[in-house]
Amino acid sequence: MALTSLKEKIDEAVKQQLRLVDAVVGSTGFPIVPDQKTGDPQWIDVRELPLRYMLSLGGARKFFEGLAGGKLQATRCRACGTVYFPPQVDCPRCRVSDVEWVDVGEEGELVTWTVINVKPLTFSHHGDYVVGIVRMPIGVNVLAWISVGDPSGLRPGQRVRLVVGRREPEGYVTYWFEVPH
């Protein structure tokens, strides 16, 4: 599902609510509707504030170059050896900003997991998804979806394999883990 079609779906739900507000404004001149449960008057904000941020990638731009090439990368401080995931290009530990990009590795051990049933609106078109934290061989943890049919069989310490690819229906390049057969 492309961003525009997801937005259309959300807008359609909002539009239904706004039609009611329009009708109320038409008859009373105020965007005031009674609360469905208590009847207390509620003013519907008609000065909509669309919040869409632009995030500067800063030092993380290389991460996305790596991901586009199928690699999940962390940074390692050349001065003190500290490994950072999520990657960061400044090392607060030794106050030196000289890092190298390193692969996190392909296979890791499952540390903990959950199944997200109640989702944020922008994930609502997905089925329930399993999220886990996986310990990778270079000593960092990675948080990602676990692709597994039945999560009740998952165990701590279980080996899982990293996959970089596009997640449909949006088509965002991302990363997740698979349970090897």
């Binding site: 995030l55 903990t112 959950t114 997200i116 944020p120 922008t122 948080l143 165990r155 991302t174």
Partner: peptide, 25 residues
């Protein structure tokens, strides 16, 4: 935001659930 919410769609209950799951195990 970027590393947890955008990629993974975590929620506050999910974060606590990761702890609950580990505590149980």
């Amino acid at each position: 935001y970027l590393w947890e919410f955008h990629f993974v769609g975590t929620t506050m209950p999910a974060q606590y659930a990761l702890y609950a799951s580990a505590h149980m195990a």
